[in-house]
């Protein structure tokens, strides 16, 4: 369960979020909104990458402002551009990087990494140079690097913006099968099949919060 109570945030003079009040127990939640609506900032607060100026965030009872480390173990984060997220030279090393604080030996980490890669369709790519993977494969790799830690929550910030249509669909399907609670930030409305709840943001405020269909109807009207 993710709770935002009276959350506000500013960058300099610009108000990015104000008075956000949300309780999210659902398994599939989406944040939808235009550029600059504050949806990415709100998502980053779940992982403690951005801390609120006002109010409080709780993720399954953990406060990112106090337990940043615990929260980041609990919450995985997939960014838009996998090039920025992939930090090691080969796919296997990158996934193993996530496990470096786990107490496993180097060999065990490599084995575990190869297993996870195989599970999500990157079988045999452990030794492959990460930057030579295709765009879709890179985003899968970024996902594997998070899932190897088996987090309870997965936040994805526009993960399909740089993907082609086929890879986008695949990625969406894959998200549907995960056991994690998923929070998806997007303005791609095709991805929201099977979502339980859609939160629409505009100018840093929650302007709609509903099941996908009525929420998206409101969002489309907002865009006109």
């Amino acid at each position: 369960m993710i709770e935002f109570s009276r959350v506000g945030h500013r960058f300099g003079d610009r108000v990015v979020l104000s008075d956000v009040e949300l309780t999210l127990p659902e398994r599939r939640v989406a944040f939808v909104g235009a550029n600059g609506s504050g949806k990415s900032t709100l998502a980053r607060m779940i992982n403690g990458l951005v801390l609120p100026d006002d109010g409080k965030v709780l993720v399954d009872g953990l406060d990112p402002a106090k337990d940043g480390r615990k929260v980041r173990k609990h919450v995985g984060f997939v960014f838009t551009n996998p090039d920025s997220q992939i930090v090691m030279p080969t796919a296997g090393e990158d996934v193993a990087f996530s496990l470096r604080g786990s107490g496993l030996s180097k060999a065990e980490r490599a084995r575990r990494a190869a297993e996870v890669l195989a599970e999500y369709g990157l079988d045999g790519y452990a030794e492959h140079p990460a930057h030579q993977l295709s765009g879709g494969q890179k985003q899968l790799l970024a996902l594997c690097a998070m899932l190897v830690l088996d987090p309870a929550v997965l936040v994805c910030d526009e993960p399909t913006t740089l993907l082609d249509l086929r890879n986008k669909r695949r990625f969406a399907e894959l998200l549907g099968t995960l056991r994690q609670q998923v929070v998806l930030v997007t303005h791609d409305l095709d991805l929201l099949d099977g979502f339980d709840r859609v939160v629409v943001l505009d100018g840093g405020r929650v302007v709609a919060d509903d099941e996908p269909e009525p929420a998206l109807r409101y969002y489309r009207k907002l865009a006109e």
Partner: peptide, 17 residues
């Protein structure tokens, strides 16, 4: 920019902790 994004990605994966 890449350094900022990498820093964020590293933080998200607990590298600063």
């Amino acid at each position: 920019r890449h350094a900022d994004e990498l820093g964020e990605a590293l933080a998200a994966r607990g590298a600063g902790d």
